[in-house]
Design a protein around this nucleic acid. Structure first.
Lengths: 230, 230
DNA sequence: ACAAAAGTGTTCACTGTACACCCATGT
DNA sequence: ACATGGGTGTACAGTGAACACTTTTGT
């Protein structure tokens, strides 16, 4: 029978993490891409990524890389898929575990954008990308749709205070469709996770629209249990 | 700017594949486990697994390992999740990509069962397992539920010809619930993927119940598009 | 004749969807 | 006064869920 040294004869590979970072500017769903600064693929658009270290878990690696590149911690992040084709990176055998993250777009500072050659791209107009990164983005987009239909994670993309119109806009953008205002409102309110604030946003209309925020406790409960959202 | 040698300084790890193999015996949903033949974890129950080679994709590795251990090819198989905790395998840093597979239980031969020290376990009574394999099984079970609700993959677990009672049994087992016979039938038939055969299974009842099979074309279409099944 | 599983329809509640007008306010 | 986006209710159709009796046939 094989012993512990059995492990020694097997191949070792590089493990990378690539992050699909979604943001929402009130109108469009966007992904944060960087211009790759080294070969292979120098100068091409790329997801933010990096290699996992032996002494850290992949989840931890993903958080580290996200923080390193965005300065953000405590971000909603979820493993998407493990991409393991042999030639996905021409330079070496690299297995990449893709994660998608949802951030409040305003949290990402212009300084960091410059420093990393980063740019927000409308999710509907993603440029040519290095390796299989475009495939990752498409899969992430689909996965986001699925997840958002059953879990109240959409709020991760919105500022703390938001109007109902912004919320509806977000969902319409994610699903590339439109919803009836009244039906959408009824559905959202029936979840009982929104709190109406005594404060109005007055930029877009004369009348002003109330800000809402969400109830963290109920929100977490729903996040665990799932629901039928859309 | 970093060059291609940038890759060289990063850590390399072992990549394993572990397979959660589901089967259905007409009454219970089962998982195929093996008794581990080497350290670490010698003698403990384990998923079927193995290491991925540099010259094969992870998907290919999963197929290879499944075939090696079961003799089966052309199996429905899907990537579940990538498990990357540092200490999940005490012997070395091993990243494991878990896949779940659905097989027709009768296809798995008794000879192979012996050869690999394999045994079918009721999914509701999984024994203590090596490493994080139990977590994998639980996740796979949940994932199967999700998938089966929106894709017609349940048939992968049934023989070519099956009765409506068997089909309903399968779904009841997966969801650990019961369905009303008439409502279930109506739903299934409305999908329009079943073909009624002119043949009865006569073992369970005097009257006998018709065998059904499924329409491969419509089935594939639904598999791609998804549906609301349960 | 009877036991045992197969097969078959209808009713009701609920959920989702379609749809249009008044309100508040800044200019 | 009017233009702009904000806010609100109702009616109808479709879907999902509950529910029980007849049929077939081997023993």
């Amino acid at each position: 029978m094989k012993g512990i040294n059995e492990y020694k004869v097997h191949d070792r590979m590089l493990i990378a993490v690539d992050c699909i970072i979604f943001g929402f500017d009130g109108k469009d769903l966007k992904a944060l891409l960087i211009k790759r600064g080294f070969e292979p693929g120098l100068g091409k658009w790329s997801l933010m990524g990096g290699f996992v270290k032996t002494e850290e878990s992949i989840d931890k690696g993903a958080s580290r890389i996200l923080e390193m590149l965005t300065g953000l911690t405590n971000i909603y992040m979820e493993q998407l898929y493990c991409f393991g084709d042999v030639d996905r990176d021409p330079a070496d055998r690299v297995v990449s575990v893709a994660y998608f993250a949802l951030i409040k777009l305003d949290d990402y500072k212009p300084e960091l954008m410059k420093e990393h050659n980063a740019k927000w791209f409308n999710i509907r107009h993603i440029p040519t990308m290095v390796f299989d990164h475009k495939k990752m983005i498409l899969m992430a987009k689909e996965s986001l749709r699925q997840k958002v239909a059953t879990h109240p994670i959409g709020f991760e993309l919105l500022p703390e205070k938001f109007t109902l119109a912004q919320l509806q806009n977000l969902y319409e953008t994610i699903y590339e469709t439109t919803f009836d205002k009244r039906n959408f409102l009824r559905k959202i309110l029936s979840l009982d996770i929104l709190k109406k604030l005594n404060e109005k946003e007055k930029l877009l209309s004369k009348k002003g629209s109330f800000y809402y925020t969400f109830d963290h406790n109920k929100y977490k409960k729903l996040q665990r249990e799932g629901l039928k959202f859309i």
